[in-house]
Structures are given as C-alpha cells and as structure tokens.
Computed example of a mutant assay.
Amino acid sequence: MNKDRLEGAAKQAKGAVKETVGKAIGDAKLTAEGKSDKVEGKIQNAVGSIKDTLKP
C-alpha cells in the first residue's frame, strides 16, 4: 500500500463525515464539499492502486 492509497482513503472518510454532518444540519455547501472530497479520495485511491500494480 502506498501513500496515495492511504491519503485517498483518508479523504474518502473525511468526505463522508462532512457529507453526513452537512445533511444533518442542512448545510448544502458542506454536503457538496463532502461529496467532492469523497470523489477526490476515490480517484487518489485508484491512482495508488494502479501504482501498486505497476510496481515490480
């Protein structure tokens, strides 16, 4: 597991928390930020996975 995968997983978790809190308090901006963070985390995690696959 490399740095990208760890950071991606952390961003996904942070995004999930933001999204949940945003929905709970009715803050559309926070909800949108959470969704954005989750997508960024998924992409970064995928990049890390590809890097792991390509490593000898």
Rank of each mutant, 00 (worst) to 15 (best):
K3C: 02
I50W: 11
Q44E: 10
N45A: 15
Q44L: 11
K35Y: 05
K29N: 04
A46E: 13
A9W: 01
K51T: 13
L30S: 04
A32P: 11
I25D: 05
P56K: 09
L54W: 12
K35E: 10
A13F: 14
K35F: 07
K3D: 01
D52N: 08
D27W: 09
D4F: 04
A46T: 14
T53F: 13
K35G: 09
Q44V: 13
K51N: 10
A46P: 07
K3Q: 01
D52V: 11
S49R: 07
M1D: 02
K35D: 12
K38Q: 11
N2V: 03
E19S: 15
N2E: 08
A13K: 08
E33N: 07
I43L: 11
M1L: 05
K51S: 14
K29L: 05
A28Y: 13
D37T: 01
A46V: 11
I25E: 13
K11L: 08
L54Q: 14
V39Y: 08
N45Y: 15
D37N: 07
E7M: 03
K23G: 06
K23Y: 12
N2K: 15
D4Y: 05
Q44I: 12
K3L: 09
K11V: 01
D4G: 00
K29M: 10
D27M: 11
E33V: 07
K42L: 00
E19G: 14
G26R: 14
A16M: 13
T31K: 02
G22A: 09
L54D: 06
I50L: 13
A28V: 09
A24I: 04
Q12C: 07
A28S: 10
R5N: 02
K42N: 00
A32S: 07
A32Y: 12
A16H: 09
S49D: 03
K55T: 08
K11Y: 13
K23C: 14
E40D: 14
T20K: 01
K3G: 02
D37L: 04
D37A: 07
G26D: 15
A16L: 15
K51L: 15
G8H: 07
K29P: 01
L54I: 10
S36Y: 14
G15V: 14
T20L: 02
D27H: 15
L6H: 05
K3W: 04
I43R: 08
T31S: 03
S36V: 08
L54T: 05
A28L: 15
K11S: 03
S36K: 14
Q12F: 08
L54R: 13
V47Y: 15
K29Y: 10
K42F: 00
V17G: 00
T31W: 05
A13P: 14
V39M: 06
A46Q: 08
S49L: 04
G48A: 10
Q12M: 10
G15D: 13
G41M: 00
E7L: 05
A13R: 06
L54H: 07
A13I: 06
G22N: 05
A32Q: 06
G15H: 15
D27S: 12
D37W: 03
S36G: 12
N45S: 08
L30Y: 04
K18E: 00
S49T: 06
D4T: 01
E40T: 05
G34H: 02
G34S: 03
S36D: 15
I43M: 05
V21G: 00
A10R: 04
T20Q: 03
A9I: 06
S49V: 13
G34E: 02
L54Y: 13
K38F: 11
E33S: 06
V21L: 05
K23V: 07
V21K: 02
V21P: 00
I25N: 11
K42V: 00
K29T: 09
